[in-house]
């Protein structure tokens, strides 16, 4: 009987385990294995090799660039805004609305977000037209296009910045007043305090958020499709088109592309975990 009890305990996890295996692990594994199979099921590296064409490589490269740029800027701006509101001596009443708005904006992604930016920075957008008529600044002639690297990055920031604010605010709250004061009284300038104490303490949180934002941007499909149609070759759009209509002419190349996405986000997270372990020797 004693042997039987533990297995009953584990039985309580059965529904969750079944769900996770059937709808999270198995589909992912299917992709991973499919990437190394021919149509007849035999093993091959052809699909992986097939990724190394200029157009697919450049789509990964653009995707990674957009993801890095939008997460780095998202972290930076989100951090500055959170720090400004918490530490900048602004009225306390600002904080709660900012967090509520961040909750809304971080969830306002996808298709509607693309519309909002088309209406603002698109060819006939509010800001585009305003700048042209009031100041004679022609964004288009200056090379700006909403259907571009920068256009997409600026759009993604709309959900990246608020996500950073939401995650970093409790971390900044966790900075003790005594640390700042101890640093000051020991002769440190504000910059020295930030460089030697505050930022190293916040580093793991910032890093974690960066990894999350990266995955967030890298997998974003809806905003990109609604914004650019298929004019910008980023990985999610290509994969979307491939799943819909096998535009690459090889069904298993789709598996390889999807596997590539998993590898990229997984790599980002492994780097994150590794850096975090290094940064957190002083914890635990």
């Amino acid at each position: 009987m004693r042997r039987f009890r533990p297995s009953l305990t584990w039985l309580g996890l059965l529904p969750f385990a079944a769900f996770v295996i059937l709808f999270l692990f198995a589909p992912t594994m299917k992709i991973v294995f499919g990437a190394f199979q021919r149509a007849d099921g035999s093993f091959t590296f052809e699909n992986i090799a097939g990724l190394f064409t200029p157009s697919i490589l450049s789509s990964y490269w653009i995707s990674i660039k957009i993801s890095v740029a939008s997460s780095a800027l998202g972290c930076l701006v989100g951090f500055l805004m959170a720090a400004a509101v918490i530490l900048g001596g602004l009225p306390k009443g600002i904080r709660s609305p900012l967090l509520t708005f961040s909750g809304v904006a971080s969830n306002f992604a996808g298709v509607p977000l693309a519309f909002a930016f088309l209406a603002t920075l698109g060819p006939l957008g509010l800001v585009t037209v305003f700048l042209k008529t009031q100041f004679g600044i022609n964004l288009r002639a200056m090379g700006f296009n909403i259907l571009s690297f920068w256009g997409l990055t600026i759009t993604y920031l709309f959900f990246q910045i608020p996500l950073m604010i939401l995650i970093i605010t409790p971390a900044i709250d966790g900075l003790k007043r005594e640390w700042r004061e101890a640093a000051q009284v020991l002769g440190a300038t504000g910059a020295q305090y930030w460089r030697m104490v505050a930022l190293p303490i916040l580093f793991p949180s910032i890093l974690g958020t960066f990894a999350l934002l990266f995955a967030n941007a890298f997998g974003a499909v809806a905003t990109a499709i609604a914004l650019t149609g298929s004019s910008l070759n980023i990985v999610p759009i290509m994969l979307f088109a491939q799943i819909r209509g096998d535009v690459l002419g090889n069904p298993h190349l789709g598996y390889a592309m999807a596997l590539g996405m998993i590898v990229v986000t997984a790599t980002a997270n492994v780097i994150y975990i590794w850096l975090r372990l290094r940064a957190e020797r002083w914890l635990k």
């Binding site: 589909p27 992912t28 995955a215 997998g219 789709g254 996405m261 986000t265």
Partner: peptide, 14 residues
């Protein structure tokens, strides 16, 4: 949060 939704759904379809 890490595995893109498009990958998951692609797995479903296959």
């Amino acid at each position: 949060l890490v595995i893109p939704a498009i990958v998951t759904v692609f797995g479903y379809i296959r």
